[in-house]
């Protein structure tokens, strides 16, 4: 029997499985809610791009928290899932432009890894706007700020992440 034949309505499926408390994104985004966004930035290009955004006083929302990694290729899918588990509403990964990687090939691997991971998250029903890879060079401070503003806006429109969150981490 195919999947679609089994499927009645998503609500009914969750109800049947006693999981109805999930999926109710709107209820949980009522009241005071600021999104939590993690930005992994490679040390050589994107972190420097973020520094340049600072030098130019190009602002972006404070909910964006940068974690410095040597290379975008250092970002393990586990880190991204961990972020969602701990309540991140969006995760963005920034690295050097393809061809410019400080370590030559790191971002090429990243590109494949993240293409597959994001597609899988989408497949599992996580809104695809919650994940993003952006190439930001050390000279692209303006692009860094613009990307972060745009991403934060997108996450606000998607609301709270309830599909991958571990509710024990809720605060």
């Amino acid at each position: 029997m195919s999947v679609t034949e089994k499927m009645t309505s998503p609500e009914a499926v969750l109800e049947r499985e006693n999981l109805a408390y999930l999926g109710d994104a709107k209820g949980k985004s009522e009241g005071e809610w600021t999104p939590k966004i993690v930005a992994f930035c490679c040390n050589w290009c994107s972190y420097a791009g973020a520094d340049l955004a600072g030098n130019n006083r190009a602002s972006y929302p404070a909910e964006i928290k940068i974690i410095r990694v040597p290379c975008s290729g250092r970002v393990n899918p586990l880190f991204i899932l961990r972020a969602f588990q701990k309540g991140a509403d969006g995760v963005i990964l920034c690295g050097c432009h393809p061809g410019d990687c400080h370590y030559m090939t790191g971002n090429y691997y990243t590109r494949r890894r993240m293409a597959l991971l994001f597609s899988m998250l989408d497949y599992l029903g996580v809104e695809k706007g919650r994940t993003r890879v952006e190439w930001v060079s050390a000279s692209e401070g303006a692009k860094f700020a613009a990307t972060m503003n745009e991403f934060a806006e997108k996450i606000r429109s998607l609301g709270r992440n309830v599909r991958l969150e571990d509710i024990r981490c809720r605060n």
């Binding site: 990694v69 040597p70 290729g73 250092r74 970002v75 790191g106």
Partner: peptide, 26 residues
């Protein structure tokens, strides 16, 4: 050179990067 590509490719977490270890980033 410490790029860490290996530490992500390694499924068991045997490969780690000093200064940017799995536990530190977690």
């Amino acid at each position: 050179k410490g790029c860490g590509a290996c530490s992500v490719a390694c499924p068991s977490g045997a490969m780690n990067l000093k200064g940017f270890s799995n536990r530190q980033i977690m």
